[in-house]
Simulated scan of single mutants.
Amino acid sequence: MRDQQRRFDRREYLTLAGGAGVATTIGLAGCLEDAETGDDDEGNGDDADDGVDDADDTDDGELETIVAGTNPGFEPFQMNVDGELVGFDVDLLEAVVAETDGYELADDWEELEFDSLIPALENENIDVIAAAMTITEEREESISFTESYYSADQSVLVQSGGDVDPDELEDLEGLEVGAQSGTTGEGIVEDELGDDVDYTSYDNYVLAVEELERGTLDAIVIDEPVAESFADDRDVEVAFTFETGEEYGFGVRQDDDDLQEALSEGIAAVEESSEYDEITQEWFGE
């Protein structure tokens, strides 16, 4: 998929995505389906049907197909552009799975609201979460994570040229503050500010940014790289960034140790090659 991806206008994407929100596709695909394999040309002489499709055969044997789930609208990690799912997480997971011996990605990803991803994983509607999800102790009570593949902090977005110009979290007290449901940003607002702000939860950050541009919202708490991406394309700016030391990981079920290990090894392999730098340059320009 990555070789077929094209450059796009981020402003056009954010403008089109906001009004209708990000559509969710909840076609609950079967997970961990064994790919069909054909007989080895140098078989043992059994009278097997030579017509069996062997397109998914590898030298290492049979592959398991895993279904990925994500939450579009979190540029540049994952987003829909002209009906195509693209982004850093999409490219990276494809590269990581390609480094594994026993797995392949299903062609279609499941696109869900962020706070629906863990339940979908637990219910086996998806097999891996690739959604810039921060590794936290609370989440690890429900799911397991691979090794970290990205580090980030939190930023506060405000309207460009507006009257709100905070320098620290305490400056948000008494203001209208937004974040995306289920994210670290929401946790920061709830834990650090609580009832001192008028908090609004959004299904995705595109909607929150539109409210910020209209002046009906004073500030947004959001992951730093995503904040910078919005600031590049919309009439918003980063007021300040504060260190949280977050680490993103791919999420898997707690009993899926083989997949967890395979993906962690795949992450290491991609990072050791030039591919990780190429993907980072593609989406972050760094």
Rank of each mutant, 00 (worst) to 15 (best):
E278R: 09
E282K: 12
T15D: 10
I143D: 00
F74R: 13
E147T: 08
D127M: 03
A268F: 01
E286A: 12
E137L: 06
G61L: 00
E213P: 05
I222Y: 09
F8N: 08
F230Y: 15
E75P: 12
E272R: 14
A152H: 11
N123S: 14
R7Q: 11
L32F: 11
P166I: 01
S181C: 08
T134A: 15
T241D: 03
D191S: 14
A131I: 01
D91F: 05
S155K: 08
I188H: 08
T37E: 11
V156N: 03
N125F: 15
L63Q: 09
E168T: 06
Y13V: 14
Q254K: 15
S201D: 10
F77A: 07
L85C: 09
E168I: 01
A269Q: 05
A35G: 09
A48L: 15
E111L: 14
A219I: 01
D49S: 09
S148E: 08
I118N: 03
E228I: 00
D191Y: 11
D277A: 15
V189L: 00
E62W: 04
A269S: 11
D54L: 05
G38Y: 06
F88Y: 14
E213N: 04
G83W: 10
A231G: 02
V221E: 00
T200W: 04
E282Y: 09
D233K: 05
D60M: 09
E243W: 00
E104I: 11
I126L: 11
R6C: 09
G87M: 10
E275F: 00
R6D: 09
L169V: 00
Q154G: 07
F250I: 01
F74D: 15
D107S: 13
T200S: 12
D153W: 01
T25Y: 13
L169P: 01
S155W: 08
D232P: 00
A23L: 09
A48K: 13
V209Y: 11
I220N: 04
G45F: 07
E213F: 08
V252I: 02
G21Y: 04
S264M: 03
D195P: 06
I267A: 03
Q159D: 10
E33M: 08
Q4P: 07
D3Y: 10
V197S: 03
D153N: 11
E42Q: 09
